[in-house]
Structure formats: structure tokens, C-alpha cells
Design a protein around this nucleic acid. Sequence first.
DNA 1: AAGTTGACTTAAA
DNA 2: ATTTAAGCCAACT
Length: 106
Amino acid sequence: MLRCPDIPSLSVFRNAVYSVVQAIPKGRVMSYGQIAELVDAPSHARLVGHVLSGAPAIYPCHRVVNSVGRTVPGWPEQRSLLEKEGVEFKANGHVDMKKYRWLPDF
DNA sequence: AAGTTGACTTAAA
DNA sequence: ATTTAAGCCAACT
């Protein structure tokens, strides 16, 4: 059914990603790599992106950026969505990850 | 089946 | 700041 060695089930993985994204508080952001770790698939940052690309719009996927705070290629509105929530961008057009990266605590 | 792509990451130059 | 390079791995050609 699934030809991926280390992902038991893509649907489970997808659900896990959705849950995490849904849990990101307003005004904070997370990176793909962070999410991958949280769902216990540390080497699958890219797959997280793939999943989000097909995610229903009900999830706040605009709160997910890459590790340097870059917004999604081909989605310029993401910036204004984040700014509306209070997320500041640096002069180079990157999110100030230092301040706005959300670190879920256990 | 083999090669390419990508909403990635880290490191180095 | 930018570019290059390598590692990564499921999805897609």
C-alpha cells in the first residue's frame, strides 16, 4: 500500500501534520523541519511541505515557513496574513524567526 | 524502473 | 547579504 520505508502510513502522517499546524498559536510560526520532528519523522521536512501543499484551507498553513523564515514560493499573500497577526518581517522579507518561532513545550 | 523535483536544512565559501 | 553544495526522501515523470 505504501512504498515508503519509514512512514508507516501516509494518512497518519498527514493527520499528525495537520494537528501540529492547527496547534500553532496566532502570531507565531513554525518551520517544516520542526513539524517533521514533532511527528517523529525528523528527515521529512520536505514531505511536510508536500502535505501542506494539498492541505484544506481550514488549517493555518500560512504560519509555516522554512528554517530561515522565508515564505512559501508563489504565495505572496502569506506575508500579509502573518503581518495581520503581528508577525514582523525583517528588511530582507524574512520572518524574524528569533522572535516568532513557536516552540511547543512538553 | 530510473531520473527528476521539491512549500527542506545545514553548512560553507 | 548571496551562492553553492551536499544530504535528505516521498512524489512525480
